[in-house]
């Protein structure tokens, strides 16, 4: 599944980034890389960006960007 369709509050593992070039590189620099554990924290109103917990920090991503991040449920630490 992709990140845009995930409900807030569950740990997720990044399986694949389907973004390419600059966008993918930016995501990686900010901690969204293959294997990273992330969590959707909330969504902005009216279909705005999603807030994503990555490592100790928070990122805002548009639903469009989030659709290019493929994740799976992550259980345990």
């Amino acid at each position: 599944m992709d990140l845009a369709s995930c409900r807030p509050g569950r740990p997720l593992r990044v399986v694949e980034l389907t973004a390419d070039g600059r966008e993918r590189r930016r995501l990686t620099e900010l901690g969204v890389h293959r294997g990273a554990v992330v969590e959707v924290v909330r969504r902005a109103p009216f279909g705005g960006p999603i807030a994503l917990r990555v490592g100790g920090g928070l990122l805002a991503l548009r639903p469009g960007n989030a659709r290019r991040v493929i994740v799976e449920e992550h259980d345990g630490g």
């Binding site: 900010l30 920090g57 928070l58 805002a60 960007n65």
Partner: peptide, 10 residues
């Protein structure tokens, strides 16, 4: 383009 990625700092 429709890309937007931004850090939300503490």
């Amino acid at each position: 383009t429709d890309s937007f990625i931004l850090e939300l700092p503490p």
